[in-house]
């Protein structure tokens, strides 16, 4: 069974979005099924954005925030981390595996890590199979 998951990656424009740019510029290649959504800070990301992504048919959602202590808005990344934790619990109760929502800390320079994370993340979502939202009874 060949399944290409649809994945949304929310990226803080101060770190992961730049790392993704560099990863692209190095032409190393990463799964093209990952759509990047740019945010001014991971602290802007709301629960509803993640839920909507699943509603729109995402099989996985990745959230990239700056490392602890290096958010340029002080604690936006910590805020995001807590919100993701809350959302993961909510998803589990809704009936969507919480492993479909992943949270990572990443700096602007860690483009190789970005590649590793999205490649591995893609594989793990692949192994989970299509989102239960999409599976017709």
């Amino acid at each position: 069974m060949d399944f290409t998951p649809a994945i949304v990656a929310f990226c803080c424009e101060n770190s992961a979005y730049r790392a993704a740019d560099t990863a692209g510029a190095r032409q190393e290649g990463y799964p093209s099924n990952i759509s990047i959504c740019r945010l001014p800070c991971s602290g802007k990301l709301e629960v509803i954005h993640i839920l909507k992504a699943f509603e729109e048919g995402a099989d996985g959602v990745f959230v990239f925030a700056c490392h602890p202590d290096s958010c340029r808005f002080l604690l936006g990344n910590v805020r995001a981390g807590k919100r993701i934790e809350h959302t993961a619990a909510l998803l589990e109760k809704i009936g969507i595996e919480k492993e479909r929502l992943r949270f990572f800390y990443l700096s602007e320079l860690e483009w190789t890590q970005f590649l590793d994370l999205v490649r591995q993340g893609n594989e793990s979502i692949k192994s989970l199979g299509p989102s239960p939202i999409k599976v017709k009874p």
Binding site: P40, C41, G43, K44, F73
Partner: peptide
Amino acid sequence: CQGCGICAG
């Protein structure tokens, strides 16, 4: 304002 959007979130 430095435009982080935390308030909106």
